[in-house]
C-alpha cells in the first residue's frame, strides 16, 4: 500500500530545525554588529548611543540563548533520543477536534 511505503521513506528532520534555530542565533549576533554602523549615518530615526549599546547587548544575549537552546535540543535529540520516539509514532491518529 502506498501509505505503508511512505512510512519507510520518512526521515527525522529535527536536525534541520535545530540548525535553523542555531542560524537564527547567528543571524542575531551578525545583526548586532551592524547596528552602530547603520545608525551612524542616519538623519531620521537615529538612536542614541545608549540605545545602540543596550540593543546590541540584548541581541548578543538572545543570539547566545538561541544557540544554547539549539544545543539543548541537540542533546534531547541524540542523547536522550526522545525526539526520535515521536517520529516512530505512527499510530492511527484522530483529528483532535470536531
Amino acid at each position: 500500500m502506498a501509505a505503508a511505503n511512505n512510512i519507510k521513506k520518512r526521515k527525522n528532520h529535527n536536525w534541520c530545525g535545530i540548525t535553523l534555530l542555531a542560524l537564527y542565533g547567528l543571524f542575531t549576533i551578525y545583526a548586532s554588529f551592524f547596528l552602530s554602523y547603520l545608525n551612524k549615518d542616519k538623519v531620521i530615526g537615529k538612536l542614541s548611543n545608549e540605545a545602540i549599546a543596550g540593543i546590541k547587548e540584548s541581541f548578543i544575549l538572545w543570539g547566545i540563548i538561541m544557540i544554547i537552546g539549539s544545543i539543548l535540543l541537540l542533546i534531547r535529540e541524540y542523547v536522550l533520543k526522545s525526539g526520535q520516539e515521536e517520529v516512530k509514532d505512527t499510530e492511527s491518529g484522530v483529528s483532535p477536534h470536531y
Partner: peptide, 25 residues
C-alpha cells in the same frame, strides 16, 4: 533612511521564529 535600524519588534520577530521552531520540534 526613515526606518530605524532596530525597533523592539526586530528582536520579537527573531525570537518568534525561534519559539515556533522550538515548539514544532
Amino acid at each position: 533612511q526613515i526606518v530605524p535600524v532596530a525597533i523592539p519588534m526586530t528582536l520579537l520577530v527573531i525570537t518568534t521564529f525561534a519559539g515556533s521552531t522550538t515548539t514544532a520540534i
